[in-house]
């Protein structure tokens, strides 16, 4: 091991760290804390209460948010499943097909959505859908989400694939497994942690997306982020804070799971 640098020796290290942490996390903490506020004001503290969480599920806006949440989940599940399948196949091709013409190009194409500004993708998707005369609605959101989720699913899967030497598939074929059986019985189980990790990441990316969704959604169709935005435009109410906190918890759980599963798989080999 090389001697590690003591970061504290850098001038201003502590100050910069505190500023960064404050800017990143203070708003989240405020939202989370105020979601338990008993008062109807969003700035005055009126004691601890779960009233706004009850309101989310039973209040006057509950049906709207429930429909939006349902839409979000349907889209996230479908888009991340399709994206994970495509990403898995892409990762197998990229790591097992050896060198082929256009390999670098393929790699760039798979990962391009990560680099293109999201608003460009959003505008492009909208223009594309209207150009081919596709009525915007749930389907357009689903298609757009599937596409931008692919690179997010691809990254953990491909990282996992690169750590699996091809000797396992060779050993399987040496032991009379056809290429299909070698994939199903040996490669796929070994890839599983990466695939799950990719799926969870894609799921949460889709669940959280606002920009592209807002462009390509049809009239009257809302996902949770767009519903929250619509509601906030008429003034922030504490129930928004409760919904936001719930989404935050779901995101943290999924991202942690994705990370844990990815790590667990790596320790095995």
């Amino acid at each position: 091991m090389a001697a590690s640098t003591n970061l504290r020796r850098f001038p201003g290290f502590l100050t910069v760290t505190i500023i960064c942490l404050f800017v990143l996390y203070a708003p989240l903490i405020v939202v989370a804390v105020y979601s338990f506020n008993a008062s109807t004001s969003i700035t005055n503290w009126g004691g601890i209460s779960l009233a706004w969480y009850v309101d989310v599920f039973t209040g006057p806006e509950a049906p709207k948010f429930q429909q939006a949440a349902l839409n979000s989940i349907i889209i996230a599940v479908c888009a991340s499943i399709v994206a994970t399948i495509v990403a898995t196949l892409a990762a197998v091709a990229m790591t097992r097909a050896g060198r082929f013409r256009g390999k670098t190009l393929s790699f760039a194409l798979i990962n391009l959505p990560l680099m293109v500004p999201e608003v460009v993708t959003a505008v492009a998707s909208l223009v594309f859908f209207s150009a081919i005369g596709f009525t915007t609605g749930l389907t357009t959101i689903l298609i757009a989400h599937t596409v931008f989720c692919i690179p997010f699913a691809y990254l953990p899967i491909s990282a996992r694939m690169q750590s699996i030497p091809d000797m396992y598939e060779q050993a399987a074929m040496d032991l009379y497994a056809t290429p299909r059986e070698a994939f199903k019985l040996v490669l796929l189980p070994l890839m599983t942690p990466g695939v799950l990790s990719g799926f969870l990441l894609a799921f949460i990316i889709s669940l959280d997306d606002f920009l592209i969704t807002n462009f390509v959604k049809g009239a009257g169709i809302e996902t949770l982020p767009t519903a929250i935005f619509g509601s906030v435009k008429q003034g922030i109410k504490p129930n928004i804070m409760a919904i936001s906190t719930l989404m935050l918890v779901v995101s943290v759980v999924f991202v942690s799971l994705s990370w844990l599963i990815g790590r667990m798989g790596q320790e095995k080999t």
Binding site: M167, Q170, L175, L190
Partner: peptide
């Protein structure tokens, strides 16, 4: 193809399937 040849290999790094028990590894072929 390799899966049709009646020869078997002991690999340098063994290439035991890490997700299978010893029995399942041996039974695979």
């Amino acid at each position: 193809p390799p899966f049709k040849r009646p020869v078997n290999t002991v690999f340098q790094q063994y290439a035991l399937f890490p997700h299978m028990s010893v029995t399942d590894n041996v039974m695979f072929g």
